[in-house]
Design a protein around this nucleic acid. Structure first.
Lengths: 339, 339
DNA sequence: TTGTAGGCGTTATCAA
DNA sequence: TTGATAACGCCTACAA
């Protein structure tokens, strides 16, 4: 039994023709019950596994999709992957992993390979939602969906977190807790989300009749060290702030640590809210960090489901922004937040 | 051009037979140069992409491999994935992602699916190196390789980091810097690596004529909060220690933060070394953390390469332990470590 | 130098 | 109720 048994072997062993064996195994056509059972028994015994390649050749679907990621499996990819893989897995689709690592040449090669394999669709993921060039489909018409990524093309379907809404959640949370002088320590200005979130915060504060002067928006790298530096700066230039909304949990971790070392009590003196809800970081923070959750796993799930829709001929397009959650822990000083 | 062009379309458009077109495209057989060129030109123009499924059907290789991960894309998966995908990508192999999430039923289904697709091989990854049940191949003979995972089966090929050697690096580093009273704050005892590392540390200390009493080995969860708790415990029960080797960077982060808040200077009073070299964490630590690097990306690369070997008929087996690195930063107080 | 025919493993149509 | 036969898209002897 060295060679993998084919349907031919099954047919032979069961004493029927190939066609009959096929019907028996797929429950097609009219067969005597006994025949069907016999064929199936033989197949079982031989450990017969239908050859997907041959099947795909015949149907017009392969039940395979490509997943092209343009970042190096960063922190965001994982929950996204999980959601995608979960949704597709339940639909019995298989996923091809392709890491293009921002190299457009590799991306082309991956696309070519996927097309050769006749995947039913492609999902493109990135680690930032700023527009990227559309995937070059090499003339093909495969359905494509962008998750946590955006392209300038209006006919494309893109799923991204609703950063503005997430920021609003955070700001409203702090305002609702009575904080009046809120600072925003965020990432580099050339990230679209930095602008979106900042505007959202401003709207909330203005609506609450609170000030939000320029000096309370501090922009720097997405790192813990920047959080520390920002803490120093805030304490020296704007010592009366009572809350900080950070653009990432890393920043919040650094900031919180620096505040504590300076004797500032969190959340009593200054409440802190992060963004990303990266559990490891949020729970390593002291006290544990209230943070905005982009629900990337759900986004991945949604993306996969939407791709299935596209494959089935739906025509959705445009940029869809999925709502974020706020996960409340102790750092913001909300009642019961002592997680 | 709605339907994807096949070689038949190319042949037709080029005015040759299918066989001739095939030869022209693959550089087989004897053809007039002009014919070859013409066929290729037509193919190019039509955007012809050979159908991999059809090709795979009669070569005996699909150039696809399955990647089964049994953890939920944890932190270790990322570099591992990267290494694997990179190595296989350069070899023009495609990777099927399968997250079994420790559910043996899902694992079976994934294996069945992979076998149906006639993958050339399978890589199994986990997040801990304790023995797991061997993959049930459903009777098939596909080459399998375990990366960052181990099975009790001696004929299997498993690649894991050399935790003992890594721990030795850390211990020797500290001893070399003159530290004499070294504690080890590590993970749960039921992890194999916890025992391996602890033994390695002991050997190094004993060889250096240093004591390593039981009370200096503190075991708990792999989390920052445990690091904090351990710091308290050490300061109260064993206040004269001058170095701590932590079982993970998370633990080290928590421990270091707690030490600083207690007024202990790191590294002057107590040097700290972590394990994992998780950059985000190591650099969020104050001061930046010296840490053992398991070189997972290399391990992934190695794994993929080894799998290619198995596919080509090599017969490697057994557990191979790949050496770790020590990445020196400021927390251990080594000269020049002020990264 | 090129075309034909058979096969890779399956499914579906149509006779028998 | 079952068995040929023709695809699916491609490759490779072998024949012309």
């Amino acid at each position: 039994m060295h060679p993998i048994p084919t349907i031919k072997d099954v047919a032979l062993a069961a004493g029927v023709s190939i066609g009959t064996a096929s019907k028996a195994l797929n429950g097609q056509g009219q067969l005597r019950d006994e025949t069907r059972r016999r064929v199936r028994a033989v197949a079982e015994e031989l450990g017969y596994q239908p050859n997907d390649l041959a099947q795909s050749l015949h149907r017009k679907r392969t039940f395979m999709v490509g997943l092209i990621s343009t970042d190096n499996y960063g922190r965001f990819s994982m929950p996204l992957l999980e959601g995608i893989e979960h949704a597709l897995g339940t639909a019995e689709l298989s996923v091809f992993l392709c890491n293009a690592a921002d190299d457009s040449e590799r991306e082309r090669r991956h696309v070519a390979s996927l097309l050769s394999k006749r995947v039913d669709g492609i999902i493109v993921t990135a680690n930032r939602t700023d527009p990227r060039p559309p995937l070059d489909l090499l003339g093909s018409r495969v359905p494509v969906l962008y998750a946590l990524a955006r392209v300038p093309d209006d006919s494309a379907l893109c799923l991204v977190p609703d950063d503005a809404q997430g920021a609003r959640l955070a700001a409203e949370h702090l305002v609702g807790l009575g904080r009046r002088r809120i600072a925003h320590v965020t990432g580099p200005r050339d990230y679209e989300v930095v602008g979106l979130r900042q505007e959202a915060v401003r709207e909330v504060l203005v609506a609450a009749g609170l000030a939000f002067p320029e000096r309370r928006v501090l922009s720097g790298p997405w790192r813990a060290t920047w959080g520390r530096a920002a803490a120093e700066r805030l304490l020296s230039t704007d010592p009366d702030i009572d809350a900080v909304f950070c653009g990432s949990d890393e920043i919040a971790l650094g900031l919180t640590g620096a505040l504590r070392e300076r004797g500032v009590r969190v959340p009593d003196d200054i409440a802190v809210v992060g963004f990303d809800n990266w559990e490891i970081i949020a729970e390593a923070t002291v006290p544990p960090l209230t943070s905005v959750d982009m629900r990337l796993r759900d986004l991945g799930h949604e993306a996969a489901t939407a791709l299935l829709g596209l494959i089935d001929g739906e025509r959705r397009q445009g940029v869809h922004r999925l709502p974020c959650d706020l996960v409340v822990r102790a750092s913001s000083g909300a009642a019961g937040g002592a997680s």
